[in-house]
């Protein structure tokens, strides 16, 4: 039966690779920078870090670094090109936010809508410390 299995596997391979190729038309990223790193490792690191904080537009729950979607690939290419041109990561982030709003960045900025995100942790921490000091205080003056 081994020959049968091998035969079927080869057949499946043929069918599957055909599917891959036909996908390839739509899925194949056009720009090599979608997948290939920048020559300058420092710039590539910047680009990678940035890609992990930009949200894929079509998959919704992933960063463009983690997504296999074609659109995410195109966004990676833009990030690499801009970084290569010498843009700072925050400039590139701003470029995307100007087009898609705060939603596109996993890193909330300080804005009218997001300041509580940065203030609340401090409030909670100080509230907690306040409550805890009371637990200790009473012991000192019994």
């Amino acid at each position: 039966m081994t020959w049968l299995k091998t035969g079927l596997a080869l057949l499946a391979f043929a069918v599957f690779s055909f599917q891959l190729i036909s996908y390839g038309v739509a899925e194949q990223p056009y720009d090599p920078y979608a997948e290939q790193p920048l020559k300058n490792p420092a710039q590539e690191n910047q680009a990678q870090d940035l890609m992990h904080t930009l949200r894929c537009l079509v998959c919704q729950g992933q960063s463009i670094a983690d997504s296999n979607a074609a659109m995410a690939a195109d966004m990676r290419a833009i990030v690499r090109h801009d970084i290569e041109k010498g843009w700072s990561p925050e400039q590139v982030r701003r470029w995307f936010i100007d087009r898609y709003g705060d939603w596109v960045s996993y890193k909330p900025t300080w804005s009218k809508r997001s300041w509580p995100l940065w203030i609340l942790p401090l409030v909670i921490l100080s509230g907690g410390i306040f409550l805890i000091t009371r637990l200790f205080k009473r012991e000192e003056k019994p």
Partner: peptide, 14 residues
């Protein structure tokens, strides 16, 4: 638009 460059530049997401 092979690399969706114009699409992304005008803020279209699909």
């Amino acid at each position: 638009d092979q690399g969706s460059q114009v699409q992304l530049a005008i803020g279209s997401s699909g």
